[in-house]
Design a protein around this nucleic acid. Structure first.
Lengths: 203, 203
DNA sequence: GGGAAAATCGAACGCTAGTTCGAAACTGCC
DNA sequence: GGCAGTTTCGAACTAGCGTTCGATTTTCCC
């Protein structure tokens, strides 16, 4: 007479979430309709409510999952580095991890970055906390590099972080697999951010 | 008996366009309703159609105006430079101009970058032409700099352009007037992109 | 293989969307 | 101050929205 904890509705739930990410990305928060999301998930609109009790709950799940994927991946990548890795190496790994995650989870990442500004305030405020914790990880990488003397003392690290994340997030908009490898993009970006575009002055 | 060329409905028209930019920015393409736009412009919904014949015509006008402001400003800023300006100076001016325009026309710029991916396909394709012509101006600045030997021959200019525009466009999302000056942001960005974050090797 | 729980359907609800259009209100010239 | 033209209103229409909920199907343990 006891109810079993849960069945395999998890499969359906994931299908719904994936569909939602795609549809939110393509049509924005208001433009994404429950009927279209349901159709993409192979369901009817009413059935969505068995898995998520409202549209807001759906967008919240999409936003959080997208952001958490980045956080988890970055943590793992940094932990896998040898303890004596240089700040430059750490930053390069962070570049690669971020872009890789963003491309792999393209639907979620693009949905997150495109829809974030259009979501009801309460949802945005809540999601901002997760977002900030990700920013903090980047701040730490940069700060340590500067303390170690590897990065210029004159560099404004807040600006550097905003520049880097702006540039990296933008990749999700233009990167097309096949044309260029993720490795090329990240190493090209790293070269610019590390060493600059300008030919150094002769001494 | 001849009709006068036009009256001062231009004032109303501009008010409608400004309101539309704000509302599109805040609520996305689908979430922006004609009734809210009208209210922000001091009109009723039906009256909008005297100035713009549909919601699509409105978003098209917002997108084009936002992009054209950037193009015009960049052209003017580059033309105002002395002919012997270095590529570095040209790039710095381009940075400053882009950010300044983006902040000054914040509603339009943010509306453009946020809504671009959600707009009906036909509108997006048309708008992409203007967008590309702006990208071309940046490509030229970078190419000339490399030809002159001011920028590293090894640098991938396509990646550099994507990095720069990604970073610059992102400023519209986080820049709050008062906290930091546009000058600080652009010179900070320029320092990183030109000279890099890393402390150069000793010779 | 029967039956309870899990999962889905499908019709319906109230509401708001974009748009239309005839009537009303303004505007500026003679 | 009247009147043609310009601009705005306001009510209405259809369509589609998010959501609800009883009925129905599917699933899987005993």
């Amino acid at each position: 007479m006891m109810t079993k904890p849960l069945a395999k509705s998890a499969v359906s739930q994931k299908r719904v979430l994936d569909a939602a990410a795609r549809v939110f990305r393509d049509y924005g928060y208001a433009g994404a309709t429950m009927r279209v999301i349901a159709e993409q998930a192979g369901l009817k609109a009413g059935s969505l409510y068995y898995h998520y009790s409202s549209k807001d709950e759906l967008i919240t799940a999409v936003l959080d999952l997208g952001m958490n994927a980045s956080i988890t991946a970055l943590k793992a990548a940094l932990a896998a580095l040898p303890p004596d890795a240089t700040a430059r190496q750490r930053l390069e790994v962070a570049f690669r991890t971020h872009v890789t995650t963003i491309i792999a989870n393209g639907d979620y990442s693009l949905a997150t970055s495109r829809v974030f500004g259009q979501v009801p305030e309460a949802i945005r405020v809540q999601h901002e906390k997760i977002r900030d914790s990700y920013g903090l990880m980047w701040r730490e990488i940069l700060t340590i590099g500067q303390q170690r003397g590897e990065f210029r003392a004159s560099a404004n690290l807040t600006l550097a972080r905003l520049l880097i994340l702006g540039a990296l997030n933008w990749t999700a908009e233009w990167f097309k697999p096949g044309t260029r490898s993720i490795e090329d993009v990240t190493s090209g970006f790293a070269a610019i951010v590390m060493d600059g575009l300008a030919v150094p002055d002769q001494l």
